[in-house]
């Protein structure tokens, strides 16, 4: 029994050093050396292109809703900010979905509120725009989700719908390697390009 215990302790410490430190630190070193932009969070001047933000102005394209945020459907969690990777505008949060099931009355009511929110903005929403994501801060929408927002953005900015359609087409990424995943538009990059247009 003692020999099992001694071997267990030796093995546990060996693994801790080898995998907890050597593997992790070597990985961090290689990552920082080869891909320092990605390894530090793909940060740009306006935030991370990989982390969704809450957009409220009609002069910008909006991302998908969050359970918190200005278009929080659930009044109980109505807080400014939204899309909380840890803290957003002073409100603490974290990644996560709303977890409301497919036959939840609360989800029906929340979705109705989101549909009404979009109608008040002059947008006829696509399903993505009334569906909360899995991470809570999905940075992407589909090109179609951006196109339906063009009337709102065009009215607020005075930029012609045709120019906005070209902008969306330019910012859209097709499926990766031609077949993986969906066509997407990164909302932050799209809005940065939109701001540059003005």
């Amino acid at each position: 029994m003692l020999v099992h215990l001694r071997r267990s302790l030796v093995m546990a410490v060996t693994c801790l050093v080898l995998f907890g430190f050597v593997y992790a630190l070597a990985g961090t070193g290689v990552a920082q050396l080869l891909f320092s932009h990605q390894a530090n969070g793909s940060l740009g001047p306006d935030g991370s292109a990989l982390i969704g933000q809450s957009w409220t102005s009609r002069a910008f394209f909006h991302g998908r809703p969050d359970d918190a945020g200005p278009y929080a459907a659930n009044p109980g969690s109505h807080v400014p900010g939204g899309d909380n990777p840890l803290v957003a505008n002073g409100v603490a949060g974290g990644s996560g979905a709303t977890n409301l099931g497919p036959r939840s009355k609360v989800l029906v009511a929340d979705t109705r509120a989101l549909v009404a929110y979009w109608h008040s903005m002059g947008v006829n929403p696509t399903p993505d725009l009334v569906a909360t994501s899995a991470s809570g801060y999905d940075p992407d929408i589909t090109p179609q989700d951006a196109l339906v927002q063009i009337p709102m953005v065009s009215r607020a900015t005075g930029i012609s719908p045709a120019r906005l359609r070209r902008l969306v087409a330019r910012e859209a990424h097709g499926p990766q390697l031609g077949f993986l995943g969906s066509s997407t538009v990164d909302v932050l990059q799209l809005n940065e390009a939109l701001a540059a247009l003005r």
Binding site: G41, D46, G47, I51, W55, P85, V87, L188, A195
Partner: peptide, 13 residues
């Protein structure tokens, strides 16, 4: 991070 376009300040984990 602070985004001047929409006035959002985020702390990212």
């Amino acid at each position: 991070v602070h985004d001047a376009l929409n006035g959002v300040t985020q702390t990212i984990a």
